[in-house]
Design a protein around this nucleic acid. Structure first.
Lengths: 342, 342
DNA sequence: GTGAAAGCGCTAACAC
DNA sequence: GTGTTAGCGCTTTCAC
């Protein structure tokens, strides 16, 4: 592969001039610029990323360390299509700004932080995107301590940091209001994974909304979830075995809601008619499911875009508002309906 | 951030010795090793990836350039959950072997090849993984020309190269055999995106299987697809408007099959009872759909694992078999059933 | 406008 | 076993 020296030689100039062509082309005479341009094309030259970043101390890469399980039975990270929507928005936005996306994986939760430390320590990247934020998140503490640029999808309770978040409390309020308007009072709740910040936000929203309608929260109708379908199924079966089952269920995400609907079906019940079900995310399948799913929509692509744009601006040293909260939106479909009289 | 010099100084040795610690620790005296070890931990040292790869000409990164559309209305690339399964297997396998995964995106098909050229030219990566292989694929030609290590998921017709592939022809044969065994003769076919190699393989399998049962192929029952749900819907509506509609349909993937099932439902028909439908992939939703989907399963996680393992072995210069074909497996579910008499 | 030269943080060859 | 040193391919002063 050709180096900057080959170009310099072929164009009859010095390496410094070629470097200028690469970084400050406006400094060059039209003439020289053309020569160099031709040499570069003739030889198919690209500047070495390693040499460039060794000198310039920047990589044009941003990083992400999703905690994806080999077995798909792990919590804390969306392993469904919503994550791909987010990821592809991040990747596209990064690419459009000349950045590539460096992905790694923590095999277990134990070596998650070490993975981040390594990526930062090795100077593999100029900035990081965080997902699956916990209410107290050691990654946030570490990155703040290093003054390393990052933007989180979601926020921590324990520190101030740049983020893009969806107002989960408001989403829950919309869900509860909707169900209450339909006449429901015994509303069950399956939470996101405990530990995640969004779990706390959603719960606050749920509890506040129930209270605002003067509805009690029955502890039997509240279950810790993990974003998995199986858990939705199991929880729904438990609910149905209760002396007084719920008439509506709010799930932590659409996948979990699908599990709930499946459980209903297995018991000969019809989701949306016998029991109302509300999901969260508005993933692609929500509209196509039978019954179609009422759900709180998160704009994943927009979040991915905003997170990445914000991060790249931070890396570029541009000042900006560093915290954004987006409103989710309830989308009413067939899986919820008016409570039938007793 | 500390450099190798800081470590050398603190441990009272030379940089060469620290470098040996990093790359050939067995050469060092136990004693020295301990000193260096301590210095590294005390300072939180990581070797600079840029400096390292400038010198060593390797990056410990592998690359991928998925062609993901911002709008999800593009063909040639799976933008569904099956791609995430593949991607996460790749990422995990890479991480387990000390490699990170560098992702970029071609915004349009036009700048796909330039993206590859850039990644290779800038020496950003040690090897590449290709997806969405075309029957004649310029990326393959380019990489072979550069003698750059790569493994493709799928194979080209135009050149010999390392790949992991699924025997799509065999998958089609299984699908056709299954439908014929159920009594179907008018079998419709919605193809993968034209241009993709898998399109040709599947078609060959389909045509051969039909012929082996002495069944004619009605051109009205063959439609070019693009992996999208909408296309499945549209095609099914077209089929139903035919004077003599098909009794069974084979789709290019599960997403497309879901579109077919939705179209049937909209026309008051029941998938699996009135018309049999076979998908391809066995994506996560296939088993949970109503009706559950008969489909040809592709082992995406295994493919991701194999592709990555193969690539990393190639990078390491280890000899191995460089071409693997996996057999897909038909999974029978509710969406196919015996043809009812007229 | 352009060239010369130092140096980014490592590795590897060679000397001791 | 350990130290010294050249150099990987760039960027960036600083002369001219």
């Amino acid at each position: 592969l050709p180096t900057i020296r080959d170009i310099a030689k072929r164009a009859g100039v010095s390496v410094g001039t070629v470097s200028n062509y690469l970084n400050n082309p406006e400094l060059l005479a039209d003439n020289t610029r053309r020569e160099i341009q031709q040499a570069i094309e003739a030889l198919g030259y690209f500047p070495s990323a390693a040499a460039r970043s060794l000198k310039s101390r920047s990589t044009s890469r941003i990083g992400m360390v999703p905690l994806i399980s080999p077995e798909d039975n792990r919590s804390m990270e969306p392993s469904d299509i919503t994550f791909l929507d987010f990821l592809s928005a991040v990747n596209t936005t990064a690419a459009e700004n000349g950045f590539a996306l460096l992905l790694s994986t923590a095999i277990s939760e134990t070596d998650e932080l070490p993975m981040y430390k390594r990526m930062v320590g090795e100077r593999q990247i100029d900035g990081l995107i965080l997902t699956g934020v916990r209410s107290h998140d050691p990654r946030v503490d570490f990155l703040l301590g290093q003054e390393f640029p990052f933007v989180a999808y979601g926020r921590t309770r324990s520190a101030e940091h740049p983020y893009v978040d969806v107002d989960g409390a408001d989403g829950m309020r919309q869900a509860v209001d909707h169900l209450v308007a339909l006449g429901h009072e015994r509303i069950a709740y399956i939470s996101p994974p405990p530990g995640l910040m969004c779990n706390e936000q959603r719960w606050e929203g749920f509890a506040a909304a129930m209270q605002s309608h003067s509805l009690p929260i029955d502890p039997n109708l509240v279950v810790d979830g993990d974003f998995l379908e199986r858990t939705g199924q199991i929880a729904m079966h438990l609910f149905l075995d209760l002396p007084q089952p719920p008439t509506a269920v709010i799930a932590s995400n659409d996948i979990c809601a699908f599990g709930i609907l499946t459980a209903l079906q297995k018991r000969g019940l019809v989701g949306g008619r016998d029991v109302s079900v509300v999901g969260f995310d508005d993933s692609r399948m929500a509209a196509r499911w039978t019954p179609s799913l009422t759900t709180v929509a998160q704009p994943f692509r927009e979040i991915g875009f905003l997170v990445t744009k914000m991060l790249i601006e931070m890396i570029g040293g541009e000042p900006q508002d560093t915290q954004r909260v987006l409103k989710p939106r309830l989308i009413e479909r067939e899986s919820t309906s008016a409570l039938k009289g007793p």
